[in-house]
Each structure stands twice: as structure tokens, then as C-alpha cells.
Design a binder for these strands. Structure first.
Lengths: 343, 343
DNA sequence: CTGAAAGCGCTTACAG
DNA sequence: CTGAAAGCGCTTACAG
């Protein structure tokens, strides 16, 4: 399609004023008289003129835009984070450009190449599951483009990051099971090369230890992707034990749903025989019956905080110390752990 | 943060060549000798130079970026569409900027204001539920920025749009219930001011008529937002009828889950007593038990087609006739309608 | 095959 | 309070 466009110069000619004045009037510059400002803005409105923001960005070296790299947009967690980012960024006058790494390191590297000197002033990233090298992010430091990581963040690197307190949250979730009288507590764990899933496992272990419950290796089910099918497998494995678990802490809600369904189908009462806790507060956790107790990971808040930090770094000219913001989670208690409260 | 940047001129000086040559070499212009091209590219690599793409965009009047306006990013359907858009756009070298209208017409109007002369070459939009006026989209026509609508599209307007065959899909879903022997078929309907939900209701009615089943107004449950709670209400209402429905076609999966749970709790067997069909193929439909038969609305494909059309319109200079692309849906048959097949 | 020059549409320091 | 001028970093038509 062809585009025709009125420029600032056209407006200037039309009003017999200089381009400088037009530019200032449009920006409500205080030096311009109110009369002139009004006149210019009225005419601009009339002619449907809006300044070419590419030219403006170019001139000011500011694009007011933030890049986001996520593994996939259609994972609920990420869609919530993006929503939180967009919401905050919008209020601050920034727009967001989104890229999906598809959990491929190669694609992540490609994207960073595209993004350098592209039109973003800051970058918010959740690493792919494969990422074990961070060289491709170094260029942003050189270019003065601030980087904020969330959820999956670089290991042992001095970076800005937004994370949740996985260890603590898992500790508390496990403790909740203990308080509800569970003595044999199982755990469905995620990939232990991913720090967040490792932290969840550690939190679980620490709670058991604190309460002098000894671990049973048969009650730890390691998975690769924490998906529904893997959860089903692990839950079935738990059922084969001589003494089945009376509590299960799952590292996400998908596997909690698996465990719940497998156990229910085996005639086990949830929560009376076995209590179940998930992680992430996915919508399904409050729809499946019984509703599942879970950890609210506050993904929207995470996105908001990421955007806040990113924009602060963009606007604060000095390179500041790297920051790590830990989002407080909350345990949402629902039927799946309310033992003795249901008939 | 401060940014320091090497420019094309710096490179030119370094190599004792003109900026023109550098520019051409970097772009693999055929007129430049292979030796020079290689030399320039090597030096660029060495100095970590990449052309300032804002300057380039400004000069070429091409930003290679597409704007998206969705009601909310964290609605699964939209996250899938966005994913489809990003995926296709990425392959074509475009990036996508996302805005959430939050289903507010006012915010939608605000966003279009920001977007005009912003950095997008095309725009993909799903209207807010409130949108009943389209004036705020007219400016894009004037600016030569192609518009593609999806899902919720303007009524009675000559626009580019990507939709699914709601009528047909609903007709077939209802017919599927009839084939499974259902005689009293209920419908949980969406907002009838929204064309897609009206079409689903119409499809349902048409199928009944075709098969000489007369409608019972007591078996039509109208809702405003098709959410879980509304579904529960409508399902309870159906249960109060002297003769309860033996089939329910729900305009989305949320309300299908409501109906399934309410009926199950009332001791009604799904699918033997009552078969249930949803719409959209949300993840929950294949997790809840029994798994729910539903219509796959192929949201990812929808996004892909939207991006494809949008990019074609951007790159085809001539204003073409408006297009409407209808995505073919498919009925995914699961346990909730497999009567006589389960124990 | 390479270069000099103009210019994209703004913004802003400088001058008055 | 307003204007003339320079310039942001590229690209490209024109010339050789």
C-alpha cells in the first residue's frame, strides 16, 4: 500500500510559521505562546497531522520501545508476564515488541542479533531451557541497552533479574502438608538443571528435614518437562509403593492435576487419603474437582516489576548496580489439602 | 544508561572507503566487488558494528514491524493467535508490537492514536467487546497502513478479516449430538451482540431445524461473558427442567466444563445420560474427566493467516480488494460425547 | 566498481 | 516568544 503523509514543514507553510515553532507547539513547549500553541494544535488536528515518530525517534535516539524474548507466548505463565509488562509499559508510554525463542538457544541468539541496534531501548528476557552460554547478551551491555531477566535467569552472572522465592514457597507448601498431618510426602519435580525447579525440590527437602520426616527416594518423581503425561507416570509410580503417599507436592499445576486424577481413579480420596499441592495457580487448579491448593506465582506482578526495573534503567542514565527482585508468592489453600473439612 | 555507537562513517574512515560503499557492501549490493564486500563485512564484525536500524528505517520508510491490538494477552485464544502471528512475521523479517485494549473501546481508541505514524507498517486487530464505532481505524486507511481484523471483526464494513466458520462448526457440533442419539439438546450461548456467538447460536438452531427437533426456549442459556460461573448457573437451570437435556452444545469450553461438573455432581452420567460439546479446544478440555468433545478453532493458524495477509498487503503496493479468510475448524471428538462406548 | 551529495522529517542549541 | 541552521545515520539516484 502507498502512504502519503503530511509533514511538519507542510504545516509550517500552511500556518506561515517556522518548523521549529510547530515542533515546539506540538510538544507543548513552554516558550511558545499559548495562542500559537493552540493554533498549531488545532490545525494539526484539522489536517490529521501527527509527527512522524520514526523521524522523531531517530532524532531523539529514543524509540520508547522494549523488547521481550519469551520461550513461547502461548504458555499461560508467560502470557501473564507479558500482560504485566505491557500494562506497565503502556502507562509509561513504552510499547513492547515480542519474540519467541521456542526454547531454542539458536533462535535466542538469532533474536539478539536482530535486536541489537533494532528499535528497543531495553530488553526483558526469559532464557530458553537450553541456554547455558550468555555471550549473545554481552552486546547489549556495550550498546547501553539494559537487560532484565525473569524466571529463567543466567546462572552465576551479575545481572538484573526478577524471580520468585521458589525455595521458600516450596518449603511453605510442604510445611502446609505436614501441618495437615501428612507423613509420607511425595514430590513431582521438574528438570533439576533449571534453577527454579531445583529450588522447589530443595525447599521440599528442607521442610521435611526441619520436621524430622525422612525422605523416601521412591516418593521423588523427576520429570523433564513437568507435563501432564509425565505427571501421570510419576503418580502411577507412587501408587505402586507398598505404602502410598498421603501428601504430594507437585512442582507445577499440570502434574498436580495428573496426580489428582490418577489417585482419584484409583479410588483414593483427595484430600482425606492424600492431599495434593500444585504450583503456579493455573486456571485449571480452581476448576478441577477438588480444587487444588497451589502457589500463586504472581506472574502478572513479575511482568510489571520487570517492566518497572527495565524502564528505570532506561531512564536513569547511570549504570547502576545489578538488581535482583524477588516476588513474594502466596499459598492459595483450596479443597485438595483441606483434610477433615470436607465430607 | 548511556550508549556509545559506532556509525557507518566511522567504519568508512577506518577503511578509507566512502559511506556509500560501506552501506552497499553491508547490504551485499551486487555492484560492489566481492573483495570490498568481504573486507567491509569483516571489519564490521570486528568492530561489532551493526547499522543503526532506526536511521535505516527512517531513511527507507520501512520499519518491518506490525502492530497487534488484542483484548488481553493472557486469554489463551489470543496468546495462540499472537504466537501464530509472531511465528510467521519472524520468518518474514517483521517484528510485532503488542497492545492490550482490555476490552475497553476508549483504550482501543487511545492505542490507535499512538499507533498512527508510530513505527508499524501494518496492524492486526481483534476488536473490544464494546466496539461499535470504527472511526478510529479510518486514519490507517489514509496513512496507507493495512488493517487486518480477526475473530471480533467490524460489522457491515468492507475490511480484511480472518474468521472461523462459526455457523458451520456449530451446525456440525450440534449434528454430532443428534447423531449420537440426543433429542433434547441445550445450548449455552454467548453475548448475542457479538457476531461469532450469534453465529454459533444460529448454527445450533439450524441443525435442530434440519433434523426436525423443535427448540425448547428453556434449553437455551444466554450468558454475557461465557465464563465458568455463568455456565454453572445455566447448567443448574437446565437441571431444573422437568426433562433434562440429553445433549448440551456450549459456545465455549469454560461453560462446557461448568455444565460437565454441575451435571456430574447431580449424579448424571456424561456422556450416557447427557453428552456435552464445548468450543475452542482449550487445554482443560482434554484434561477434565471425561475429556470434552470440542471444536478446534485453530487459533494459531488464524494468527498465521492474519500475519500472512497483513504482510502481503504491506508488500503489495496496490490497494487490493478487501479479503475475508475463513479458517476451517475441526470437531475433536472425545469421551464427553462417546455414548455407548464407555462403561 | 566507487564516491560525492542530497535528503528522509524531525529536534534543539543558539541567536535575537 | 520565534526562527535559521545544523544534524541525527543512513540510503540511493546520479555521475564517473
Amino acid at each position: 500500500m502507498k502512504r502519503s503523509q503530511i509533514t511538519l514543514k507542510d504545516l509550517a507553510k500552511e500556518l506561515d510559521l517556522s518548523a521549529s515553532t510547530i515542533s515546539r507547539a506540538l510538544g507543548n513547549h513552554p516558550a511558545i505562546s499559548e495562542a500559537t500553541t493552540k493554533l498549531v494544535q488545532k490545525k494539526a488536528e484539522e489536517l490529521g497531522f501527527t509527527p512522524n515518530s520514526i523521524a522523531s525517534s531517530f532524532r531523539k535516539k529514543k524509540t520508547q520501545s522494549i523488547g521481550i524474548i519469551v520461550p513461547r507466548i502461548d504458555i499461560y505463565f508467560h502470557s501473564l508476564v507479558i500482560s504485566g509488562i505491557e500494562d506497565y509499559a503502556y502507562k509509561k508510554g513504552y510499547n513492547v515488541s515480542i519474540f519467541q525463542s521456542k526454547d531454542s538457544l539458536k533462535r535466542e541468539q538469532e533474536i539478539t542479533k536482530i535486536l541489537q541496534n533494532k528499535m528497543v531501548e531495553g530488553l526483558i528476557v526469559c532464557l530458553t531451557i537450553e541456554t547455558d552460554t550468555y555471550d549473545h547478551f554481552k552486546k547489549f551491555k556495550r550498546l547501553g541497552i539494559p537487560l532484565v531477566f525473569y524466571d529463567r535467569v543466567p546462572k552465576d552472572q551479575d545481572v538484573n533479574s526478577i524471580i520468585i522465592n521458589d525455595f521458600e514457597a516450596s518449603y511453605k507448601a510442604t510445611e502446609h502438608l505436614i501441618e495437615k498431618g501428612c507423613k509420607r510426602i511425595a514430590h513431582i519435580a521438574g528438570n533439576q538443571f533449571t534453577p527454579i525447579f531445583k529450588a522447589r525440590y530443595e525447599g521440599y527437602k528442607a521442610a521435611l528435614q526441619k520436621h524430622h520426616i525422612k525422605q523416601d527416594p521412591n516418593l521423588i518423581g523427576f520429570t523433564k518437562n513437568l507435563n501432564y503425561e509425565e505427571g501421570v507416570l510419576q503418580a502411577k509410580h507412587f501408587l505402586q509403593q507398598a505404602s502410598i503417599p498421603d501428601g504430594i507436592f507437585c512442582a507445577n499445576d499440570y502434574t498436580a492435576v495428573s496426580a489428582l486424577q490418577v489417585f482419584k481413579k484409583a479410588g483414593i480420596d483427595i484430600p482425606e487419603d492424600t492431599a495434593i499441592i500444585g504450583f503456579s495457580n493455573y486456571p485449571i487448579s480452581q476448576v478441577i474437582e477438588p480444587h487444588i491448593t497451589t502457589v500463586n506465582d504472581r506472574a502478572f506482578t513479575m511482568g510489571k516489576e520487570a517492566a518497572k526495573l527495565c524502564i528505570r534503567l532506561i531512564e536513569d542514565e547511570q549504570e547502576s548496580v545489578k538488581e535482583t527482585i524477588s516476588i513474594q508468592t502466596e499459598l492459595i489453600i483450596r479443597e485438595s489439602t483441606l483434610r477433615g473439612h470436607l465430607n
